[in-house]
């Protein structure tokens, strides 16, 4: 084949161009650590990367959004523990008040303590979390219980999506904890004890022991429910953490370059570019243009 000068020059330019393009790409990969600089570099990988990043972002959102109900549930559990303690104390007062040796004055004094317990019960029932009143159901903007002990909330649950497509109840039912919906109107039970104490009626006082215990167990059941729901969120969060690691590893495999390989490629291409320049120099030196002079 006849070789013209333009063929030799074109070949040199073309080879240099290809090598420099590869070198530029290898430099980008080594500098950024990203295997995929644009969708065209690896369309399947780019689409996969978008999906994996989307899944990672969703997991982030779940983990972040779990924090609010988790905090509220823990707070509700604490409030219910307090309420349970109140009823334990009310039960003690009932046993004490049923003792026939107590005077009317003694019982009046105990009634005052019951008043204080009721105030504390109302306070516990009106505990506010990040999402508002914790025991009002979906009525989070108004107090769950009035000063008289009437439950003002509703029995509806609040839900949240805690994992892709999985929603969970993230509230503790104040209705079940404090109102007759749960079996006992706990404030009324305290009122019954107070009334019996004021009326200095040992038999009536003794009759409240069992109802107060039922109220205490009702509150403890609600506390257990809060604990279980909180645990479920913990479990979900732990699962998210694992999923996050797995997804991040997958995304890393798809999108990120191995630094050692990237650097090795860069060095290899640098060598190839230098070699090509050397070959080009040799090739140009053999061209007759150098002999015309």
């Amino acid at each position: 084949m006849r070789i013209s000068d333009s063929m030799r020059l074109d070949a040199i330019v073309r080879q240099q161009g290809h090598l420099k393009e590869q070198y530029a790409n290898a430099s980008r990969v080594a500098a950024t650590g990203a295997k995929i600089g644009a969708p065209g570099d690896n369309p399947v990988g780019a689409a996969q990367s978008v999906r994996l990043q989307g899944a990672l972002d969703r997991i982030d959102a779940f983990r972040e959004s779990i924090k609010t109900p988790k905090g509220d549930l823990d707070q509700a559990e604490g409030a219910l523990a307090t309420a349970g303690d109140l009823f334990a104390r009310a039960g003690e007062i009932a046993l004490q008040g049923a003792n026939g040796s107590l005077s009317a004055t003694d019982r009046a004094s105990l009634a005052s303590e019951v008043d204080a317990l009721k105030t504390q019960l109302v306070d516990a029932a009106n505990t506010k979390g990040q999402a508002g009143y914790l025991f009002g159901g979906t009525s989070t903007a108004t107090a769950a219980m009035d000063a008289a002990g009437n439950f003002l909330g509703n029995a509806a649950d609040r839900t949240a999506e805690i994992a892709p497509g999985v929603s969970a109840i993230t509230s503790v039912s104040g209705a079940l904890a404090f109102s007759a919906s749960g079996g006992r109107n706990v404030a009324a039970d305290l009122d019954a004890l107070r009334t019996a104490l004021i009326s200095n009626n040992p038999a009536a006082i003794a009759a409240t022991v069992s109802t107060l215990d039922a109220s205490r167990r009702q509150i403890l059941a609600a506390r257990t429910d809060a604990g279980l729901k909180s645990n479920r969120l913990d479990t979900a969060d732990a699962a998210h953490q694992q999923t996050q690691l797995s997804l991040a590893a997958q995304r890393h495999a798809v999108s990120d370059a191995d630094p050692t390989t990237a650097y090795s490629n860069l060095i290899a291409l640098q060598g190839a570019v230098e070699q090509a320049i050397s070959v080009a120099r040799t090739s140009l030196s053999t061209m007759s243009i150098n002999k015309f002079g």
Binding site: A61, S65, I66, K67, T68, A131, A141, R158, E161, T170
Partner: peptide
């Protein structure tokens, strides 16, 4: 969608 998720956790 993450904003909806956060809203579900704290709707008010």
């Amino acid at each position: 969608f993450s904003s909806f998720t956060a809203l579900a956790a704290n709707p008010n």
